[in-house]
């Protein structure tokens, strides 16, 4: 077992009065892929979004408990929200390219953090696109609008864009939900490379994907952590009956 990157301690999350996560504690190891899965509305998206505090966009939401990244409380007043979101990058279920060229999409984050030199930006862009397995597809048309890419390419662009921020953690919320099998395979493949440098938390598209890509996995149900363990344990020999039922499709 490697070091713990993220430590979630007794997290409870509320949308107004509605509680979406109940007293949830979990250690997420560094340089591993952690899958979080469960039936619809289990609170998976909420959990991922609480790791970069993206829920703060929604009025009347509240998180209780602690989340530590490298032993630093992300709710501490000294934490800058924009810094946190650059350390903890996120890819959504729908590709969200910015309405600008491929290059500007990629360079946006680095520019925000103060990098101006064209050559330096170009280096980051190329490197990040290569890591997301998109460089070959787009290297000769970096100036075309990002919206002209296919869905799968857009999603890889969003991944590359996050990588260009040089984050420590990458959150992926069903990143392959709208993608064809080939794009999905490309993304899964690059994740295996990426985990060498980053800590990855993913809501897999389905149980098969969870089994293929993850090192560890968590099963969630109605905002509760049901079971956590290595991918083999959870996907092949779950101890909790609810996990087993869900995995074998007998859930309901």
């Amino acid at each position: 077992m490697t070091d713990t990157k993220i430590k979630i301690e007794n997290l409870s999350f509320f949308y107004g009065k509605k509680q979406a996560i109940n007293d949830f504690s979990l250690d997420i190891p560094k340089n591993r892929i952690m899958s979080v899965f469960g039936p619809a509305k289990s609170g998976i998206t909420t959990l991922l979004r609480s790791l970069n505090r993206l829920y703060e966009l929604i009025p009347d939401t509240r998180a209780e408990g602690r989340i530590l990244i490298d032993n630093e409380d992300i709710h501490a007043p000294s934490v800058s929200l924009t810094q946190l979101r650059r350390r903890v990058g996120m890819v959504f279920d729908v590709p969200t390219p910015l309405p600008m060229s491929i290059f500007d999409n990629m360079a946006y984050g680095p520019r925000l953090s103060g990098i101006k030199r064209r050559s330096e930006l170009e280096g980051i862009v190329e490197q990040s696109l290569k890591m997301a397995a998109l460089w070959e597809d787009v290297c000769d048309r970096l100036d075309t609008p990002a919206a002209s890419l296919s869905g799968g390419q857009q999603q890889r662009l969003c991944m590359a864009r996050v990588l260009a921020l040089k984050p420590e953690v990458i959150l992926l919320d069903r990143p392959c939900s709208g993608l064809d099998p080939i794009s999905t395979a490309k993304i899964e493949e690059s994740l295996q490379e990426l985990k060498k440098q980053f800590t990855i938390v993913i809501a897999p598209h389905n149980i098969q994907q969870g089994g293929r890509i993850s090192d560890r996995a968590v099963f969630m149900l109605s905002g509760n952590l049901i079971e956590e363990g290595t991918a083999e344990e959870i996907f092949a020999n779950p101890t909790d009956k609810r996990t087993a039922d869900y995995i074998t499709g007998r859930f309901g």
Binding site: L54, R85, M90, V94, T96, L98, P99, G109, L165
Partner: peptide, 27 residues
């Protein structure tokens, strides 16, 4: 606009205003 446009921008570490003028208004 799809909610994800703005969220994608904020998740990149933009401030609300940066998200408005670089993503929301152009879109």
């Amino acid at each position: 606009l799809p909610r994800q446009y703005k969220e994608g921008a904020l998740a990149l570490g933009m401030t609300h205003w940066q998200a408005i003028y670089s993503v929301v208004l152009p879109s």
